[in-house]
Design a protein around this nucleic acid. Structure first.
Lengths: 252, 252
DNA sequence: ACTTGGTAGACTGTCTACCAAGTGCCATTA
DNA sequence: TAATGGCACTTGGTAGACAGTCTACCAAGT
């Protein structure tokens, strides 16, 4: 279910069967709870996470906590130091950049495949999401816009029909959203215009165009991030690290 | 260290420090042992894995085994069925296809970035690998050729300088290699010609060309797989599964 | 002032034992 | 033959224990 999930319950596609209630394993809940706490800042970056402490905090024993922590470590949310414990991951400066580069590749390919496999219904849904998102944007509801943005992107990756792309893109997306929300408001309007063009390309089954637009879209987000970074950067110390010489965009 | 690793010991780049010996956590060794056994077929596909059994087999207790199994589950090597146990994953027919599609995207982007960041030394190493691989191929040493192939690809992804690409591509690669080795001999010669062209493009810092070649390269591998599949397919039952019409039922 | 050595506390890694609940299988039964 | 009930097995989770290791701090020696 995490990294490369093969969808164990493929029985779910058979209509008529509905598993009544599969009580989630505790480790799963713990995992969710911890990511949540990391994202919303309850567990601040660099903080030392102690198993028993978390266990007490969540009302479970060490084991589920350990298992959740190991998964978090595998996915890069925390760093596990043997014999010492887990620290909430402190992102390196170039990490967002790399994350966005990876996302560009993954989502661009997803868009290409989505265009290839697009159905009428799916496109209709995409259009709807676009409309809703734009409305949110115009009415100034940033939270709603961000959420809808996420839904749109994840729907497109799922339309690719490729579990691995879905899974990887999902991971990257969550990470990006973690240390990255501030950009959303700035990009807003332009972002939704690009979405509209993207959906149009998909509806026309124009693979290359869809891939191209998605790539540019992600790329714009990246440059927006860098501008924001160098513009209002007084928060972080961030010594001289070639702020203007961001040449690198050439082709992509 | 697995999925999205952030390289916790960045101290390693400082020359002069060399960590003596960090005894690997047991769960790590168990994980390695199990993947090995899965890949080499000791644990055949679909086999029911029981924690205590594995524990006894490896001379450890349940705990490390559980943790290793969960990681294997997350990465798609086994399927964990609650209350019953783990089964070695049995790949669906379209899984290789999706895997290769994901790999195409990841490695193509890696090649692009590798071309962007290529150094003289790295290119020299690539050339060397190419030479060695071609020699293996011509001398009929399939094992050596396959190994060198892996080294070349992983070196290119690492040249991308993007941890996430490296990590994802690494995961995909291992999975691909698992249920996929038979293709290597067939592709062989052509494959190494393509490698040579790829290295040339990288050495010329021609990003687009490198990406393009890598994409075609992976794509060729995929078609080779399909030909092999439909040609000598008497092993699996595999009823009529639209071999030519690569259409895939829209939704999946 | 700086190094060395030692001590103490904290936490992980691993093991053992145990229990509850769920799953799959099989024999019995209708 | 097909449904039913029961049984053995396995995981999921808990608790407690112990060794090894990591960090910090303090004291003594140079």
């Amino acid at each position: 279910m995490t990294t490369i999930s093969a969808g164990p319950d493929s029985s779910a596609d058979t209509p008529g069967v509905r598993h009544v209630k599969r009580p989630t394993p505790l480790r799963e809940s713990v995992y969710e709870a911890l990511t949540e706490m990391i994202i919303d800042g309850t567990l601040e970056r660099g903080r030392h996470l102690v198993e028993v402490e978390l266990a007490g905090m969540l009302g479970v024993s060490r084991q589920p906590v350990r298992e959740a922590l190991q998964r978090l470590n595998n996915e890069g949310w925390v760093d596990l130091r043997p014999g010492f414990g887990a620290m909430v991951h402190v992102p390196a400066e170039d990490e967002v950049d790399q994350l966005l580069a990876a996302r560009a590749a993954l989502e661009s390919e997803s868009a290409r495949l989505a265009a290839r496999h697009a159905t009428k219904e799916a496109v209709a849904q995409l259009r709807e999401l676009c409309k809703v998102g734009t409305a949110f944007q115009e009415s100034g509801d940033i939270d709603g816009a961000v959420r809808t943005n996420g839904e749109l992107h994840s729907m497109i990756t799922e339309m690719s029909g490729n579990r691995f792309l879905v899974d990887f893109a999902g991971q990257v997306d969550r990470r990006v959203r973690w240390y990255y929300t501030p950009v959303a408001p700035v990009r807003g309007a332009a972002s939704w215009r690009e979405h509209a063009r993207l959906v149009k390309a998909i509806s026309e089954a124009d693979e290359d165009k869809a891939a191209q637009i998605m790539r540019e879209h992600t790329e714009h987000t990246r440059t927006a991030y860098h501008e924001l970074q160098s513009g209002q950067a007084p928060a972080a110390p961030a010594p001289e690290k070639k702020p203007a010489t961001r040449r690198r965009r050439s082709t992509d």
